[in-house]
Simulated assay, not measured.
Amino acid sequence: MNIDRAKANRDLLAFYSEAGVDIALRDEPNDWLSAEEPAPAAAPEPAPAQRSPAPRSPAPVRAVSASILPSAPVPPPPDAAVMTAREAARSAASLDELRTILDGFDGCALKNGASRLVFADGTPGSRLMLVGEAPGAEEDRQGLPFVGKSGQLLDRMLAAIGLDRSKVYIANIVPWRPPGNRTPTPVETQICLPFVQRQIELCDPDVLVTIGQPSTGALLNVQGIMKNRGRWFSYQTGTREIRAMPMLHPAYLLRSPIGKRLAWRDLLAIKKALG
């Protein structure tokens, strides 16, 4: 039997190639796992280091006095801020004096992030006073309450019963805009509450309307704007009793127009109370 060794070798190499063999070994087996690793080449000796000059010490930094750095006033603890607010509010003999006192009051941290004080709008001494929650972005820019989209709707609501801003007085529980138009915290509300209470006393309206739950809860101490809106409450100033009614906030009415029918009922009740 003749064997074509050349062809057999080619076939064997083809088999090895298909099997993944890519290196030719010797005839004797070689245990690559037990082979000693070659010793690493000796690292060349470093050249003698040149003497470098001593590092220069940095120039002394001049201390900056903290008195020339701009910083916001640190508000006092909440309890102390409330007591200070009560004393400051009681000392105001007029709305103009109250505004000046409030503008210099540093007990509420909201003042540090607001552009300006939003005190009031309308005519002091009006028979109808409305108290909302807190200024928004547009109110913060103009320094007047209810001048954004909610305020525009409020103007139309007042016009529906024959009123405008010259015949009412408008304020907020909190006179500074909270960051991001968020709801004022209970602490922030309690700190600012003495000022709006004094504002109501000095304005002395015949009818007080609390707009939205925050002002309703703070001034009338009732929770649940939907179940309490349209109801008459008694607000005591210390010298007289004022009729008070909670009403849905215009911002809520913009989101839920179906609530406008309830607001219309409340407006008619307010018109009737004003005679």
Rank of each mutant, 00 (worst) to 15 (best):
G217K: 04
P246T: 00
E139F: 06
P40S: 13
M83K: 14
R243I: 15
A88G: 02
E28A: 14
V196G: 02
A244Y: 09
A159L: 05
L274I: 15
L153V: 00
P205C: 03
R243E: 13
A47Q: 07
K272I: 11
E87M: 14
F195Q: 03
P78E: 06
N30P: 11
L254Y: 04
A120W: 04
A72R: 03
R177A: 10
A269M: 09
P29H: 06
T210E: 01
E87V: 15
R62L: 09
R231A: 11
S67K: 10
M245R: 06
K149S: 13
R10S: 14
Q190G: 11
D22G: 11
A263N: 08
I191S: 02
F146S: 00
E138W: 15
L248M: 04
G217I: 01
A251T: 04
A244M: 09
A273E: 01
S34H: 07
A6Q: 11
V131G: 02
D11W: 14
S256F: 05
I242V: 12
Q152E: 11
E36T: 08
G224D: 00
A81Q: 04
D103Y: 11
A80K: 13
K111N: 11
P246N: 00
A114F: 05
K227A: 08
A120N: 07
G104Y: 11
Q142D: 14
A171Q: 06
Q236Y: 15
P40M: 14
R99M: 15
P135T: 00
T216W: 02
G104V: 10
L219E: 05
D155E: 10
E188S: 09
S34A: 03
P124Y: 02
N30R: 13
P40V: 15
A114R: 09
P38K: 11
R62S: 09
P186E: 01
N2K: 13
T237Q: 08
A269Q: 14
G143C: 06
F15K: 06
M226A: 13
L267Y: 01
